[in-house]
Amino acid sequence: MFPIRDHNPSGRVPYVTYGLILLNVGIFASYWLTVPNEPRLAMFFIEWGVVPRRVMAGHGVHGLFTSMFLHAGLMHLAGNMLFLYIFGDNLEDILGHARYLGFYLLSGLAAAGLQIFADPASGVPMIGASGAIAGVMGGYLLLFPRAKIDILLIIVIFFRIFPIPAWVMLIVWFGLQLLSGFSVSGDDGGVAYWAHAGGFSAGLLMMIPVWIGLGGPAFWNQTRGQPPHPVAKYQTVTSGIPRVGRRK
């Protein structure tokens, strides 16, 4: 189940969201095209990622920030940037550019903090923007629970795109992070599930004062739980390839 777009584009240009996407892509290209081999790349991630064991010893603290802009591969980068593109613009519209950037970075720090707390002895570097983006998703859940999100559902050879309320997709996603966090022990999973859960929780909690300032339940009543912009109209394009009937 993959989200591919929402139905409420932002009311103004989300410069910070676009800037973060470009920055992540640029940084990824800068080391992916220049670091010569996998051992050197692993050392690069240890130096600039978050290694809980090192942080607990007082080393590599800068990785709490730099790790948010590193990705292990093209699909890792593409997935994170898609989520940021879908959920970031409406939140930036509400918070404003500067507050949104601070919110994003604080979510990333909270994500790293919970991952370190969950496994302080780990020597595996944590990298990726997913913790910070999870914070964006948590904030989105509180402000726009009924926004429509188009998801691509893939079951073996069955493909279908259909809209669901944001709260369904986000709560299922968060529940999967918790389930995986409790199920996978130590460094076995390769995914920082607790970072995802920590970022999501931090984003939701940080958004509570904003939600109250907007009117709380009255804001939901006014916007019907959706971003306060016209709903985008998506058209289904019919294939121009003619159908060929079966021969009898």
Score class of each variant (00 low, 15 high):
S130C: 03
G139P: 01
A147S: 09
G240T: 14
G58Q: 07
G245K: 11
F144N: 04
R246M: 15
P230Q: 08
A147I: 06
L95F: 01
G198P: 06
L91D: 03
T236Q: 12
Y15Q: 08
L101A: 11
L77N: 00
T34V: 15
Y18Q: 06
L178S: 09
S180Y: 03
I4H: 11
I241Y: 15
G213F: 04
E38V: 13
R53Q: 15
L214I: 10
G49V: 02
L20V: 03
G58V: 03
P217C: 00
H71E: 15
A112W: 03
D6F: 03
I241D: 10
R246S: 15
G203K: 04
A192K: 01
G135D: 08
R247T: 13
H196N: 15
A72F: 08
G102H: 05
F83S: 09
P9H: 04
L176C: 09
G102T: 10
L152N: 07
A166V: 08
F44G: 04
L64W: 00
Y193C: 02
S122N: 04
L109V: 15
M81G: 08
M207S: 09
L101E: 01
H59F: 13
I157L: 13
A195W: 01
G186K: 07
P14W: 02
R54W: 12
L109F: 14
G181V: 07
A166C: 05
V61K: 06
P227A: 04
T236S: 12
P14G: 06
Y104P: 07
I149L: 05
I127N: 03
D89L: 00
A121E: 12
F162K: 02
V55W: 02
Q226Y: 06
L91R: 02
G96N: 09
T17L: 05
I155E: 13
R243M: 12
W194L: 00
P165D: 08
G19V: 07
L77Q: 05
F162R: 06
N80Q: 06
N8V: 07
L106G: 11
H7V: 00
I154Y: 09
G58C: 06
P230M: 05
P228V: 07
H71F: 12
P163T: 03
P39Q: 03
G63D: 02
E38F: 13
P163W: 07
G49L: 01
N80P: 06
P230Y: 09
L176E: 04
T238M: 15
F2V: 15
V156F: 10
L176S: 14
I157M: 10
I157F: 14
F69V: 08
W211L: 02
G175T: 05
G175H: 01
H59L: 15
N80F: 00
V210E: 09
M126Y: 07
A112C: 14
G240A: 14
S122L: 06
F219N: 08
L152I: 05
H62R: 08
V191W: 02
R247E: 14
I212W: 11
L106S: 11
F162E: 03
Y85K: 14
R160A: 15
Y15L: 13
G213Y: 04
I157D: 15
F87Y: 08
A78G: 09
L64F: 10
Y234A: 02
A118E: 06
V35Y: 04
A166E: 00
N80A: 02
P230C: 11
G128A: 06
N8H: 15
Q177A: 09
V35A: 11
G123H: 05
